[in-house]
Amino acid sequence: MSDILVLYYSRHGAVRQMAHLVARGVEQVPGVQARIRTVPSVSPVCEAVEAPVPESGAPYVELADLEQCIGLALGSPTRFGNMAAPLKHFLDETSGLWLRGALAGKPAAVFTSTGSLHGGQETTLISMMLPLLHHGMVLLGIPYTEPDLLNTDTGGTPYGASHVAGPANNRPVSEAERRLCLALGKRLAETAVKLAR
């Protein structure tokens, strides 16, 4: 069984919910399983500030998770049109993998959640893509052959799955957003299997 790493940071739970939906999409593909991981919060001076093992939820990611996976789904809430600092802090620590080309040729996809409809979803998705491009990963989006991408009035972009959580961060993932998360996970797994051959 091959692993797709679904790596995320979530503060209010929306990105965590999306990660589990992407993982369900991954597991629609035979021979592939999702490995869900997260990153710890960081202090204002960018040091991990949580216990080495989370009290609940997904385990914290290790560099070995990136090396062992055949594909990566990366998720973060939006922070002023950019990925959240805890995820960026982790990615900044992957230069050893970059030097060895450990991620080159592996497929990757991204997903995000914002408080408002025009809250920087696409720039956040692109900000997550940039380090993946430096690693030589093959980036995947969501094609417009997915009907929900054309019809959604909530989240959903060709750059990756997205969700509008609302100003109080309590709006549930819509049906269209859910289907786009599933579609992204399935597309990532199908591509990873083809590239792994």
Rank of each mutant, 00 (worst) to 15 (best):
T191E: 04
G75L: 08
M83G: 00
A14P: 00
M18F: 00
L180V: 06
I142E: 04
A108F: 13
V32A: 13
L195Q: 04
K106Y: 09
N151H: 15
H134L: 10
M129H: 10
T114V: 14
E190Q: 15
P30T: 05
V61D: 09
L130I: 15
V26H: 05
L132A: 13
L97A: 11
T157G: 09
E93C: 12
R35G: 05
M129C: 14
E93D: 12
S10T: 08
V49N: 12
T145A: 14
T114M: 09
L139I: 15
G25L: 07
H20S: 08
G71S: 12
E27H: 00
H135L: 08
A104M: 11
L139F: 15
D153N: 12
P172F: 00
L182F: 00
A104E: 05
A183V: 10
P147W: 03
A109Y: 11
I4E: 01
M18W: 00
W98M: 15
V53K: 15
L180I: 06
R179M: 01
T94L: 09
L72S: 09
E177V: 00
G71L: 12
T152K: 10
P54Q: 06
K88V: 14
M137W: 12
M129W: 09
D65C: 11
A73V: 07
G115D: 03
P44V: 01
C181K: 03
Y9D: 05
R35Y: 01
V138M: 11
S43D: 13
L72R: 09
A192G: 14
A161G: 01
M129Y: 07
H89A: 11
A58D: 12
E67C: 08
V53N: 04
P77Q: 01
N82F: 05
R100G: 11
E50G: 06
L195K: 07
V32F: 14
S116D: 07
T124R: 02
L7F: 02
S162D: 03
T78E: 11
V110C: 05
I126T: 04
S56L: 08
M1S: 13
G75D: 03
Q121C: 03
G141L: 13
L21G: 01
G71Q: 04
V29M: 04
W98I: 12
L180P: 05
L87V: 07
A176H: 15
E175H: 03
P143E: 13
D92S: 04
P147C: 08
V164Y: 01
C181Y: 03
V42L: 00
L130N: 04
E122C: 07
M18H: 01
C69H: 11
Y9G: 03
V164F: 01
A192R: 14
T123P: 09
G31D: 04
V53G: 00
S113W: 00
Y60A: 11
A196N: 10
W98D: 12
P86Y: 06
G57Y: 09
V15M: 08
P167E: 14
A85C: 08
N82V: 02
